[in-house]
Every structure is written in structure tokens, then in C-alpha cells.
Write a protein that binds this DNA or RNA. Structure first.
Lengths: 129, 129
DNA sequence: CTAATAATAGTAATCATTGCTGATTTGAAG
DNA sequence: CTTCAAATCAGCAATGATTACTATTATTAG
């Protein structure tokens, strides 16, 4: 029940902290494997899930079929490209307004919220000439 | 390439239109089967995907591992219960503000957006003693 | 009515994620 | 510094939602 440290988990957190592109479990696995050649994919998933449950990272479930993970806990939203499925940050915070407006129309108890923007990212706009 | 009508698809649309609880493919299947006893789950999935791609219904990918479907295309958001994973409507529309604010910080081309609220629904609040 | 093709039922396959098991690591207490 | 129970791991099997495939049936334009 107590949380022990582990080199694998530390490496996963450290790697995530270096990235702003919200990698998938697979990407985390591929990268952490460069330092821990025989870390297993299961370990990556278990730790990402554990960290998300503890609230130390955020799990993003987008229209993409893979989960993405974000080590940045500051309030912000996300943009997902419909072409390449890349995920990028939208650093705005409308918590006050959004939660206030929602509370006026529901009795459900809101603890948090997420905003996803969809469209075509800058890079994919270029490609489509 | 041309779209033909099919009784199965009509039944799926008709069923979805009667529900405000954003059923999963499985739930759609169970219900439509009462009228079409040997409709297949694949047909349900194929049509839900087709309709979502055509923009005639919305596919909601939540923290729940199952997709939910919504026949109501009017601008509105969703609340998902962390306990029972029920999905309910939040009839507010902050498109103008949200898209305006996002456009001030990104060059990505935004075509649409989604807001998910999470928390404990009214029913689950009661259950908790 | 008929041919072309869209859609279906039934089932197999995919693939992200989770579960299992026996071995290894961690950390608190002596 | 040892000890030992509990936590974590690697490797791999299993799960489960969704998609793909194939032979058959339904739809619709002409």
C-alpha cells in the first residue's frame, strides 16, 4: 500500500517532464528503454496509470485511439490535429467561467474539466498546400 | 461510394434520437436488436462510425474506455461521473469565448471543440452514505 | 426487371491496455 | 549492516472494445 520509489518510475516521470507533446505509453516505453533496455511495456502502463490516479500527471483520452500523457499540471487545454493526431497545449484557463456556467444548469458535483480543440495543426496546413 | 438507405441504419438513428444518455455501441446493439433480432454488432459499429464521420451524430470519447454516441448536434457540453461513468448534457455554449481565447494563443486552425466536466453525479452523491 | 454496388450477418483479427506470476528491489526495523 | 515483508518488476498471457473480412442480401438507378 505504501509507495516505494523505483528507478523505472523515476525515469518515466523524468522523461515525461522533458516533453511538451504529450506522448503515448508506447512513446514513453521506446524512450525510457534507451536508459532501461529491459523495462517492460507493462511497467510503463502501470506507472502511468498509477501516476495519473495519484494526480501527478494527466491522462488525455482524445479522438485518437491512444491515451496521451501530460506532466504539466497547470490549468490549460489541448489542441488535437485531425490529420496527424498531434496534441499541443493551449495555455488558457477558463475554469471560473466554465464551472460557474455549468453549475447554473446542473446539480452534479463538478471536480474538474477538460477542453479539447480539434482542427488542422500548423504543420498539416502547410502540407495541404 | 453513394449512400444507400438501410433499415438497420434508420433504426440506429431512430433509437439514438430517443435517448439523452449517450449510449455506447453495445447499448445501441442491445436495443436495436429488439426490432432487428439478427442485426450484428459490426453493423452497429460501422453505422455509428459512418454517421459520426458524416457529422450526423457525435462520438464522445471519455475517460470511460467505451465510446458514447449523441444524436443531439446542438452546441452543448458533457458531464461524466467518475463513479458510474454516466454521461449527461450540460446545456451551455461558450464557443465564442473559448475559440476566441484559443485563437489568441495558437496558429492551429480550430474547427470545433469539446468540453468535458468530471465529478460525481447526483445519483452517486446519494449512494455515498 | 436487372445489373451494379452498397450494406449486412457472422466471425476472425487487431491492438491498446490490463492481469498474472515468479523473481527482484526497496525501505523500515532491528 | 542484515532481515524481511511489501512493493515493484519483466515477461508474457488475457481482455475487451473496435475494426476487418467474406460470402450473402438489399437497394436503387436506368
Amino acid at each position: 500500500m505504501t509507495l516505494n520509489r523505483s528507478k523505472q518510475r523515476d525515469a518515466i516521470i523524468a522523461f515525461l517532464a522533458t516533453r511538451k507533446d504529450h506522448p503515448t505509453a508506447e512513446v514513453v516505453y521506446d524512450n525510457v528503454r534507451e536508459t532501461f533496455p529491459n523495462i517492460s511495456l507493462g511497467t510503463v502502463y502501470r506507472n502511468l496509470t498509477l501516476l495519473a490516479d495519484l494526480g501527478e500527471i494527466r491522462r488525455l483520452r482524445t479522438r485518437d485511439s491512444k491515451d496521451h500523457f501530460d506532466a504539466d499540471l497547470s490549468p490549460h487545454y489541448h489542441f488535437i490535429c485531425n490529420e496527424c493526431f498531434s496534441v499541443s497545449d493551449i495555455f488558457i484557463d477558463k475554469t471560473t467561467e466554465l464551472v460557474k456556467a455549468a453549475n447554473e444548469v446542473t446539480m452534479n458535483q463538478i471536480t474538474d474539466h477538460e477542453v479539447f480543440y480539434y482542427g488542422i495543426c500548423k504543420d498539416c496546413q502547410k502540407k495541404e498546400h
